[in-house]
Design a protein around this nucleic acid. Structure first.
Length: 640
RNA sequence: GCCGGUAUAGCUCAGCUGGUAGAGCAGGGGUUUUGUAAACCUCAGGUCGGGAGUUCGAAUCUCUCUGCCGGCACCA
């Protein structure tokens, strides 16, 4: 005779054991309709599972976060059922719910085609229509293995074999389809509804390991209501419009071409944007006590052997051989070069910390399949810096770097930043004792900074543990940009020393840090974050002066020169076109400020100023316009 | 690197089951002097990504290489 407590504190008494479905029905018919599971303690239970004890429960509805996950997981099962009905020889493997949807991995020789997806969708809708009951069954491990092996489901059998022998297994059966699954599930396939869509098919390795067989993964999205599905598809379309590869073309910033895979051809406007970022960073770094340097792109492989790069990073390095037989590597990182600079000049502890910065262009041979616009390239520019310091200085320097990074991200409008602490990876150089020391130092510094962080095990650099700075953009995507690493290995390998206060030789600690990470990547992120509408201070062309009639040509040129004198990048558009035509063209190209000038403006020494994204313009004195824009540029769009 | 898709004019795309290419925009020339997201007329522009094959004949079918796209793996 269980007493069930609901989230509002009310209690219901039942005479016999009761199921979640019965409780929901007892409350209201609409709840009975929308319920998909119940939460008992921390666990989700099937609606059909009977409750014997007094417990507090929560009814999970289809549009809640948990409910959606269930729905998506169910969609994966219905997908698998449909595929098994259509192609019985296909083997099923796994099919979880993921963000916004689900997937299922199948083993099948024939590839799935676009047309197949339509056929599968149709079958899935039929299965929903059939409203098959989804039944939970508890099985003994060995019986389950036999069941799947007899069905020819080798992959499933292997999954079960890896489950500890004493663990009870649950299978879920719907129609003729049975799948190993932890559950819970919806009570019947009809509850899935029709708000799902198969999106694409792709390859995926069995158990996520590139050494294994490749399976075929079908991705789908699923929602509680058709309206939500539509909204999601709309969001995808919007995200596509933000694609930096598209914006790069319409804004005339850069391009790629076949002869240089993974390398950017910067157009004048794009390069101007690039230089704006460099100038900004240069100023911030100068203020923070960094010294800017430049080191060779090409250095003999012996240096890279000594640093350990060739051994641990060699697969990613470009090399070239000259006529004299020497082999040079094109630098994939700037650190060895900076150590050479340190070795040239620094001899005393009095010079530490010694902070070297370089806008270093590095080349890395990334796997062809990894390339993606400017977000993943083979040639990129790092805002790299190396801080040589004593062990005692690690904490202060680390805190200073964290503050610098967070402050800079704020200037770009990124407030939401996650810090990850990544420790030793499998492939690394140096003794464990040195790693113990480096990890402890970084962690202690981070702890004393008072910043929140999460642990990212095994993801450090090959020479030391690191902090990763992940920022979240306007549409909720995460990007890793900044990094800060403690390195006790490279300075020693490359023979860097200084004389301490004790008169003895010491090896300096090397802190590696980057803030944008890659300028190319950061620009791509900025473009997508702002959907191309860059803040005024960053825009390559800040203002365009448009003539309404050719009578205004002289005045327009005068306006442009006054703007330029005030440090505002401006151009005139004197073409024989209608003003609407010019407004449209420059709006499409995302020019932030348009100034139209005609006869009235000539007479009154004014401009008709229109902001990107606005349908309105205001007429103001040229001098006032210049003042307004100058202030906005100076404050980087953030009113003091 | 792996799986799948894809490559036609500067850009976006059309071209059915093989009969050697078409539109819009951009560009050139002209008309128009224009008041806030596309004025009008006209001209030019492509060995259909590269190579090989099948065929009387290939943008179209096959193979292969390269790039790109979506994932996976890698990386950050």
């Amino acid at each position: 005779m269980p007493v069930i407590q609901l989230p509002d504190g009310s209690k219901r008494r039942f005479d016999n054991t009761v199921t979640g479905a019965e409780i929901a029905a007892d409350i209201s018919t609409s709840l009975a309709r929308d319920a998909v599971a119940i939460r008992v303690g921390g666990e989700l239970w099937d609606l059909s599972r009977s409750i014997e004890d007094d417990v507090a429960i929560e009814i999970v509805t289809r549009d809640s976060e948990d409910g959606l996950e269930l729905l998506r997981h169910d969609a994966a099962h219905v997908l698998a059922e449909a595929v098994k009905e259509l192609w019985p020889d296909t083997q099923v493997t796994i099919g979880p719910a993921i963000e916004n949807g689900f997937y299922y991995d199948f083993a099948r020789d024939e590839p799935f085609t676009e047309d197949d997806l339509e056929v599968i969708t149709k079958r899935m809708l039929e299965i929903v229509e059939r409203d098959e009951e989804i039944k939970r069954e508890v099985w003994v491990r060995d019986d389950a293995i036999k069941l799947f092996r007899d069905m020819g489901e080798e992959f499933k059998a292997r999954i079960i074999e890896d489950i500890p022998a004493d663990e009870t297994l649950t299978l879920y059966r719907q129609g003729d389809f049975v799948d190993l699954c932890r559950g819970p599930h919806l009570p019947s396939t009809g509850k899935l509804g029709r708000a799902f869509r198969l999106m694409r098919v792709s390859g995926a390795y069995w158990r996520g390991d590139a050494k294994n067989q490749m399976l075929q993964r079908i991705y789908g999205t699923a929602w509680a209501t058709p309206k939500q599905l539509k909204a999601y598809l709309h969001r995808l379309e919007e995200a596509e419009k933000r694609d930096h590869r598209v914006l790069g073309r319409v804004m005339d910033l850069f391009h790629f071409q076949e002869e240089a895979p993974g390398a950017v051809f910067w157009h004048p406007k794009g390069w101007s944007l690039f230089q704006n970022l460099v100038e900004y960073m240069r100023q911030r770094q100068n203020e923070a006590g960094y010294l800017e340097v430049n080191t060779p792109e090409l250095m003999d492989v012996s240096l890279w052997e000594a640093s350990g790069h060739l051994e641990t990073f060699g697969d990613n390095m470009f090399t070239t051989q000259t006529e004299d037989g020497r082999i040079y590597a094109i630098k994939p990182m700037n650190c060895p070069g900076h150590v050479q600079l340190f070795k040239q000049g620094i001899t005393s502890y009095r010079d530490l910390p010694y902070r070297l910065a370089e806008f270093g262009k590095v080349h890395r041979y990334e796997p062809s399949g990894a390339l993606h616009g400017m977000l993943r390239v083979r040639a990129f520019t790092q805002d790299d810096a190396h801080i040589f310091c004593t062990p005692e200085q690690i904490t202060d320097e680390t805190i200073a770097v964290c503050q610098l990074i967070l402050g800079i991200y704020r200037d770009f409008g990124f407030e939401d930043v996650v810090i990850k602490y990544a420790d030793r990876p499998k492939v690394r150089v140096g003794d464990d004792a040195v790693w113990d020391q480096a990890e402890a130092a970084l962690k202690a510094a981070l702890d004393s900074s008072g910043l929140d962080y999460i642990h990212n095990p095994g993801e450090g650099a090959f020479y030391g543990p690191k902090l990763e700075f992940v920022l979240r953009d306007a549409i909720g995507r995460d990007w890793q940009c900044g990094t800060h690493q403690v390195d006790l290995n490279l300075p020693e390998r490359l023979g860097a020393t200084y004389i301490g206060a004790d008169g003895q030789k010491h090896t300096p600690v090397l802190l590696h840090r980057a803030i944008f990470g890659s300028l190319e990547r950061f620009i791509a992120i900025l473009l997508e974050h702002h959907a191309g509408k860059l803040p005024l201070w960053l825009s390559p062309t800040q203002a365009k002066v448009l003539t309404i009639t050719s009578d205004a040509d002289d005045y327009a040129l005068d306006v442009v020169s006054q703007l330029r004198n005030a440090g505002i990048s401006a151009d005139a558009d004197l073409r024989n076109e209608k003003i609407s035509y010019k407004v449209r063209e420059h709006s499409v190209a995302k020019v932030p400020v348009l100034m139209a000038v005609g006869r009235r403006e000539i007479d009154e020494k004014t401009v008709a100023l229109r902001r990107l994204g606005s349908k309105h313009q205001k007429v103001l004195a040229l001098s006032d316009a210049i003042l307004e824009l100058s202030e906005e540029i100076r404050d980087r769009g953030q009113a003091a």
